[in-house]
Design a protein around this nucleic acid. Structure first.
Lengths: 127, 127
DNA sequence: TATTATATACGAGAAACTTCGTTAAATCAT
DNA sequence: ATGATTTAACGAAGTTTCTCGTATATAATA
């Protein structure tokens, strides 16, 4: 169980960058951000300060340029947000969510299908 | 392709009620809402007015008490929000999302597993 | 050491979301 | 018809989220 708030839209965009390049300075993160659109450096800085305040990222302040890192892994965040969506829109049923997800999609690779099947078998064994 | 904004947290809570009892008046929807927590009637009314403004609900104003209904079905909204989550947190890969969802969960019913498998086979045939 | 560059902190404004009170109109009951 | 009830409309205040400028401190460099 984690206690952290769900990241907002903008926070999630920043986390996505951090999961690739962190640990990183604000400058490094900001360089990535401005590849898709204008933003001030101080905007990025403020976002990270707020995220730190919320506990979404941890930081090392030993040096002048602080080093930031996500508190949760990408996988843990995926789990958290799937859980949230499941509860708020799928009546708490993960299989309902999965069914809808599979039904929606029409371009799943064979290798991925196999992976899903394998996982299904594993889940099945446990019951 | 639909053009509607993603419903906010509170809007989604209202939509969940409407998918069960709509078409419905503000009063009817509000009665459901106050079953879990206090809210003023005018708050519910305002939410519905804003949702109508955004196109999330349609309404019939022939009578004094307007009749509201969601614009999209629950299924269409599920699809929309899964699509959004997929793009923002799963690099656009639905199978990655499904794998994570199945891995997270440990209480899937056998009947649901069978349903998922059947759907997988169907998806597979199309390739 | 003095100047310049780079970083953090902070506050304030803009924008989106949520809540609620007041007003006025329509409907109902007496 | 008159008064009470129910409803919609509206504006405004409270919250959260996002953006940015200014001030200040630290580090680099000339």
């Amino acid at each position: 169980m984690n206690n952290l708030p769900k990241p907002t839209k903008t926070e999630l965009a920043i986390l996505n960058i951090m999961w690739v390049i962190s640990p990183a300075t604000v400058r490094q993160i900001h360089e990535e951000i401005i590849k898709n659109g204008k933003t001030s450096y101080t905007t990025t800085l403020k976002m990270l300060q707020v995220m730190h305040q919320k506990g979404l990222v941890i930081r090392n302040s030993e040096h002048k340029a602080h080093i930031y890192e996500p508190t949760l892994t990408k996988k843990a965040t995926q789990k958290q947000m799937l859980e949230d969506l499941k509860n708020r829109l799928f009546g708490g049923s993960i299989s309902s969510l999965v069914l809808q997800a599979l039904g929606t999609n029409d371009t799943t690779k064979q290798s991925e299908l196999d992976e899903i099947k394998a996982l299904l078998d594993k889940v099945e064994e446990k019951s």
